[in-house]
Simulated assay, not measured.
Amino acid sequence: MAPANLTHSLPSTFLLQGIPGLEAHHVWLSVPVCTIYVVIIAGNCTILWVVATEPALHRPMCYLLCMLAAIDLAASTTTLPKMLCIFWFQGGEIQAGACLAQMFFIHALCMMESAVLLAMALDRYVAICFPLRYNSLFTGSLVAKMGVAGVVRGTLLMAPCPFLIQRLSYCRANIIHHTYCEHMAVVKLACGDTSINRTYGLAVALLVIGGDLLGIGLSYSFIVRAVLRLSSHEARLKAFGTCGSHISVILISYSPALFSFFTHRFGHSVAPHVHILLANLYLLFPPMLNPIVYGVRTKEIRQRVLRVFLPGRGDAKPRRG
């Protein structure tokens, strides 16, 4: 038996395999991944720059958008450079400490992003249901407190996972069948009883995703009820229009996350490469599409970008009527 199969402690290194079954296509897969990473950096940095330099955007919803952009940049930078090393140079080896750190930041940042999406839903709820009190209720100070709460929640909930993994015994090969150090992918390498790790991971996922989706759903149920009470059809369309960007981002963020979550735990007949591709979609698509959605649908952001890249276009006044 190989020495790697005799160890009963955390291996000093892990080997990230990439996408099982598609190793021959890694070079081709690197092209869209690299392109998406460039778009992620450009799009989210543009959002941060525009909000910072445009006084009209110094308001709570845009501060939340900046938080979302910063989280997307951090999450993608935690995973994509290493993923590209695997695709280009077969550089899948990663130190155990670096693997646990990557796992911590990936999942903690995902929890933080979910908290920001919930805060955005509350922002829309207050703006539509209590428009006259919005400026006094939803302040920059409140947004800062929500951001800190999201960071603390993600950090505290994810902090036990690396320690729970270190207590496990490892008697199998140290090859992780994934493109990054995902929690369950690392747990599956252990031998013996992993029920505590599995139960804790499932409980945290259900608490965060289920709780935040419940909060978002309740917010929009009150929003829909308030909007339907408006007498003007034009006013109803305008009210729903202010929620369009956020609803799009929710669908973009939660859909691949839920597919990946349920497929990973219950879709045992699904091919391994499908598991990994779904998990990668969750880390690739939301950070790429979020700034595009808000850039297109937010007038001030759109006009600011146009003024920079297409002088004269961003200064055009909207038509009346």
Rank of each mutant, 00 (worst) to 15 (best):
R172D: 14
F89I: 03
C181G: 10
C85I: 06
I276F: 04
V208H: 06
E113P: 07
G140E: 00
V270P: 03
T179Q: 08
K299M: 11
L228K: 13
G217K: 07
C110W: 03
F14T: 10
V293H: 04
K145P: 04
V296S: 03
H268C: 11
L278H: 01
G43A: 08
H273M: 11
C171E: 15
V39P: 01
L122G: 07
H107R: 07
T13C: 05
W49D: 01
C34L: 15
H25W: 14
V227S: 05
E93Y: 00
C191E: 09
A149F: 12
G147F: 05
H177Y: 12
S30T: 13
A203S: 15
G215L: 12
L48E: 00
F262Q: 07
C181T: 07
E182M: 08
S195W: 11
S232L: 06
C62M: 15
R236E: 08
T242A: 09
H264W: 15
H275S: 06
T199Q: 13
A24C: 01
Y220A: 07
P160M: 10
H264Q: 13
L68F: 11
P256V: 04
C243V: 10
R265T: 08
H264S: 13
A56R: 15
L230E: 06
V148Y: 02
I176P: 04
A239D: 04
L284N: 02
V293S: 02
K145C: 14
I276H: 08
T298F: 12
L202G: 00
A119I: 12
C110M: 09
Y180V: 12
Y200V: 08
A119H: 04
L84R: 08
P81K: 05
R225L: 03
R304Y: 13
L157R: 05
Y294E: 01
A4W: 10
E93T: 09
A257Y: 08
L157M: 13
N5P: 00
S114W: 00
G215K: 09
I106Y: 06
M61R: 14
A2Q: 05
F259N: 04
N135P: 00
A52H: 01
V143L: 01
K188G: 04
M83S: 11
